[in-house]
């Protein structure tokens, strides 16, 4: 049971980081973004280029080899690159779509994901690559060796989930983000720079995806085009479970899904079900959504039952 919990929280932390990016963008713009998984992957490829000193195909230059940088610098460049991609998408696409329906912008994010996927395949090919882990080893908890990047993923998710929530409520810019999703036109009429808010949100969501991709890569051990998008889908589900607008909810949603997947792997692996991880996500999502619909009705019935009983006895 302890093992299930530890393994679940390790992957839950990563899902939570992806989910935080989903919630940030949705809370500030009302848009559900599908691009950030691939944005995170693109950042990770850049980190791998810089850290491993890869030889990259550049026109007119014979086998240019990049100097190998420390992991931390590569990671920093990956996060900055992902944030830049998010900001560019906001300026070049979201802003030009004006007051379009959030669904239309969501479809545009699918376009960005496909564009990045195609670019990665074109530049790096299909075969998996490796990025050396920044540190190895770590403490053993319930028989599971937990690496520093896994611990960092979970702690960062919890800190960001509750920290960003406080920032949103306690700063003027944070309140502007909350208000922007409720009424973007009115936000401009009180003097809040909507374009800066939108830029920050898209940049922050993309940066969070890159952080998540960087922290999960040492656990998986390889990276390939589309790699983080598979995890991002679970992050999307975690955000939905958390209510889509709650940052702490996204962290809880991520951990719930992580633990559910870990439990399924532990107790249902003998069934040899294909895609068990995603079936678990679907089941948890259905249970939570149905529970959310049925629970208020159940509570209402329980509240009215004693009063009816009193009426009958009277």
């Amino acid at each position: 049971m302890g093992q299930v919990l530890v393994l679940g929280l390790i992957s839950g932390g990563i899902y939570a980081l992806f989910a935080l990016g989903v919630v940030m963008v949705h809370r500030g713009t009302g848009v559900l973004t599908f691009a950030n998984g691939e944005v995170g992957t693109a950042g990770l490829f850049l980190a791998a280029l810089l850290v491993d000193g890869w030889t990259i195909p550049v026109p007119f230059i014979d086998n240019p080899t990049l100097p190998a940088l420390p992991w931390a610098l590569g990671a920093l460049a990956a996060v900055a690159f992902a944030a830049l991609l998010g900001c560019l998408f906001e300026v070049l696409v979201v802003r030009r779509m004006g007051v379009s329906d959030p669904v239309a912008v969501a479809v545009a994010t699918v376009g960005l994901a496909l564009f990045l996927l195609a670019s990665e395949l074109q530049i790096f090919g299909e075969s998996p690559k490796e990025l050396a882990a920044p540190v190895t080893g770590g403490p053993t908890i319930f028989g599971v060796i937990v690496t520093p990047t896994q611990i960092a993923g979970l702690l960062l998710a919890i800190a960001l989930g509750f920290g960003l929530q406080a920032v949103l409520r306690r700063t003027d810019f944070g309140l502007g983000i909350l208000a922007a999703a409720q009424d973007p036109a009115a936000v401009r009429l009180v003097g809040v720079p909507l374009s800066r808010i939108s830029l920050t949100i898209w940049g922050a969501g993309a940066a969070l995806a890159a952080i998540a991709a960087l922290l999960v890569e040492p656990t998986v051990g390889i990276l390939y085009p589309g790699y983080a998008s598979e995890l991002y889908v679970v992050g999307l589900a975690a955000a939905v479970i958390g209510g889509l607008n709650s940052l702490p909810g996204a962290v809880v949603g991520g951990c719930v899904l992580g633990i559910a997947q870990s439990a399924a792997t532990r107790y249902l692996s003998d069934l040899h079900l294909p895609g068990l991880h995603f079936v678990v996500v679907l089941v948890v999502l259905l249970v939570v959504m149905l529970g959310r619909q049925l629970l208020p009705e159940l509570i209402k019935r329980m509240d009215t039952a004693p009063s009816r009983a009193a009426e009958v006895s009277a």
Partner: peptide
């Protein structure tokens, strides 16, 4: 501005609405 339909921010408290109204003043 007092916009058409009032356009207060429904998910924010009264004080948060006022604080947001004072955005440029606070800056």
């Amino acid at each position: 501005h007092v916009p058409q339909g009032r356009q207060v921010f429904p998910g924010l408290t009264v004080e948060e609405n006022l604080r947001l109204g004072a955005y440029t003043l606070r800056r």
